[in-house]
Design a binder for these strands. Sequence first.
DNA 1: TAGGTGATCTTG
DNA 2: AAGATCACCTAT
Length: 206
Amino acid sequence: MKKLLNPEYYLQNNVVSIAQSLLGKCLHTFIDGKHTAGIIVETEAYRGFNDAACHANNGKRTPRNEIMYGIGGFAYVYICYGIHPLFNVVTNGLNHADAVLIRAIEPTINVEIMQLRRGNNTTVKQLTAGPGKLTQALGINKTHNGICLEGDKIWIEDADVIPFKKIITEVRVGVNGAGKDALKPWRFFIKDNKFVSKTVQKNKSV
DNA sequence: TAGGTGATCTTG
DNA sequence: AAGATCACCTAT
C-alpha cells in the first residue's frame, strides 16, 4: 500500500541522515490537473548552522529563505540563476533552518507528460537528471514555495530504505563559494542509477 | 567548455 | 538604485 512519509519524519534533527534516507522514496505532484512522479535518486543536505553553502547559514534570514525557519515537512522552492526553480524539503523543528535539495529523480508516472513539460527536447535519461530539470518536468514553480508535503499538490511516499552499500557519498555540486564547507560530503545518490545528474570520474588512481 | 539567464541580496 | 552573486542548463 502507498503510504505518505510521517510528519515526524521531517522533524528529525539530522538533515544529513534525512538526505540519505530520502533516496528511494517517491516524489509525486498533482499540478495543472496532471499526476506525475519519480523515485528520488540524488539529494544534498544543507544545514542551518555551520554550513556556509546554506542560504540560511548561522541565522541569515531573508524573505527568500523564510520558509526554512519553519518546521519540517514543507517545500522550499526558490529561483536559481534567474530561471530555474529548485525544490527543497524543509526539515527539523522551528527555527532550525535545514533543508534537503532534491537533485534528480527516476521518472515513473506519466513520463510523457514530463517530456511535454520539458519541450519534448530530451531523452528520458536526461529528463529529470538535475535539480532544475526535475522541477520543470514535475510542474513545480515558485508558487509552490511553502506548501505542505502532506497536501494534494506535492507529496512524498514512503519506500524501503536503500542499503548503505548502494549509496555513493560525495561533495555537493556548485557550492565552491562556501570555503571549507564546500568539502562537506553531503551529496548522496544511488549507485549505478543512470538518472543521477552527473557522475564524477574518479580515475585519479595514483 | 563557455556563456546565457534574471531573481535576489548587498552595497565586496 | 545599481552591481555582484549565484545549490543550473543547453549548445558548441
